[in-house]
């Protein structure tokens, strides 16, 4: 059995189904969640939400089919994982952030927390203004930075006292690590193709 399989669009739907069921049931009977795990899940929801905000920009800014395909994959997998993380938090009677309905809005004093690797306001503005190959380059380099942040968050989870001890979190974090690292490698290849030496 391997959760690092729960990757890709179809796979993430699985994750949602699974976490909506077995893992939630687990919490009803078993331990209370560790603060490190709760902080990881809450932070990762905001982190994933920014990836979706970036993908939304693809529609009228690129002509690259492979970038569209990449975007679709990221969009579906991150949405599904957000829903799964929200369910995990609610089942543990924790507040579950819900940033998706507010994407792209100016939140004034209620800005998203900046998790590792997240693009700054200036970076997001530059991405919005770019078109064509310039957009493709900014998107790929931005998403690589963003995904590397997820790897940092996973590393920090396991570097925190009491973090990642629950089987479900251990497996989910292992999954994010494998999934995003492979996606970074693919995006680097795409970026190299855009920037011939």
């Amino acid at each position: 059995m391997n959760m690092s399989l729960l990757r890709g669009p179809a796979a993430s739907r699985v994750l949602r189904a699974m976490v909506g069921t077995a893992l939630v049931a687990l919490s009803a009977s078993a331990q209370s969640a560790s603060p490190a795990d709760v902080a990881f899940m809450k932070g990762m929801i905001h982190h994933h939400a920014q990836a979706i905000e970036m993908v939304v920009l693809i529609a009228d800014r690129t002509t690259s089919a492979s970038l569209r395909t990449l975007g679709e994959r990221i969009d579906i997998s991150q949405r599904d994982e957000i829903e799964m993380m929200q369910q995990w938090l609610r089942a543990r009677r924790e507040e579950a952030p819900d940033p998706l309905p507010h994407l792209g809005m100016d939140m004034g004093d209620h800005d998203m927390p900046m998790m590792a690797g997240m693009l700054t306001k200036a970076q997001m503005a530059a991405l919005k203004d770019a078109r064509g190959p310039a957009f493709d380059r900014l998107f790929l380099s931005g998403m690589i930075q963003h995904h590397e942040g997820a790897l940092t968050m996973v590393r920090e989870l396991f570097a925190t006292t009491g973090g990642g001890q629950e089987t479900a979190i251990f497996r989910f974090a292992s999954d994010i690590d494998a999934d995003q690292r492979a996606e970074i490698a693919r995006m680097r290849t795409m970026l190299r193709a855009l920037n011939p030496p």
Binding site: L5, L6, A10, A11, V14, M18
Partner: peptide, 10 residues
Amino acid sequence: DEWGGGMAPR
């Protein structure tokens, strides 16, 4: 092929 990691209805 363990599509879905063994935790999903496949």
